[in-house]
């Protein structure tokens, strides 16, 4: 168990008559990218909500680095090392890129009730924020307002914000969504370099990216994990081909 950073055990979530999550168990180990794929309506978003803390599972448990987080809030989970990005970019648009990342650094340091020292010359906030941007190859845009960024750049800022938290786990919700082939390839490269440092649970539609990046893949259909394995296994699995791959690519 000690080599598991994040583990979901027997999660169930029901909205009225709809069973959105059925007995989902999966885990994430250090140094890997574990991809979660599934057709639209498979319950990916519900599952992410439960991991990130915006939804509570009806039953089951979530353990992050040995600590049970099932009933903690979004902010508490983030403090324990869960970094995430959103399917639809969620950044403060009028603020500069730098400022968006700095708030994560500030959260990591845990001193938000300080009223006096100005942040704009606070090196202890600025330096780690710039380092995170550097990792996502965005340092040159640090002073630009998020509103002026391209879609792909916003994706990179989101990941930089998550990285600035020095997370134990990254939860990336369709980071490639809406990116052109070039942007997608670029982000794939950045994530590949990242996974040695932080294990990533990747929810993604882009199959090329998934097969290139993922060490393991779980397939979610109708709220349940129907298949699990490395990319060769998944490609070969007839059930998966029928439920998912057959309808889209490959």
């Amino acid at each position: 168990m000690s080599d598991v950073v994040l583990s979901l055990a027997h999660l169930n979530k029901r909205f009225g008559a709809l069973q959105a999550t059925r007995d989902v168990s999966l885990d994430l180990r250090p140094g890997e990218i574990h991809a979660l794929i599934g057709p639209n309506g498979a319950g990916k978003s519900t599952l992410i909500g439960q991991i990130a803390g915006s939804l509570r599972p009806d039953t089951g448990s979530i353990v992050l680095a040995g600590q049970e987080i099932t009933s903690l809030s979004v902010a508490q989970r983030a403090r324990l090392g869960l970094g995430r990005s959103f399917q639809i970019s969620s950044l403060a648009e009028p603020l500069s890129v730098k400022r968006n990342v700095m708030i994560a650094v500030q959260a990591l340091q845990g001193h938000s009730f300080r009223f006096w020292k100005p942040v704009h010359r606070d090196e202890s906030l600025l330096a780690p924020a710039m380092a995170a941007l550097e990792r996502m190859a965005l340092a040159h845009r640090a002073d630009t307002a998020v509103a002026e960024l391209s879609h792909g750049e916003r994706r990179q800022v989101e990941v930089a914000c998550a990285l600035a938290l020095k997370p134990r786990v990254l939860l990336l919700d369709e980071p490639m969504a809406g990116l052109g082939p070039e942007g997608s390839a670029r982000l794939t490269e950045l994530l590949e370099a990242l996974k040695r440092e932080v294990p990533i649970l990747l929810i993604e539609h882009d199959m090329d990216a998934v097969f290139r990046l993922a060490d393991r893949i779980s397939v979610l259909v109708d709220g349940a994990v129907i298949a699990h394995g490395d990319s060769a296994t998944i490609r070969a699995n007839p059930q998966v081909r029928e439920a998912y791959l057959g309808e889209t690519t490959c």
Partner: peptide
């Protein structure tokens, strides 16, 4: 501006 972003960073709004 974006309280989801704040919570995601680990600061309860």
């Amino acid at each position: 501006l974006n309280d989801t972003r704040l919570a995601t960073a680990g600061i309860a709004p």
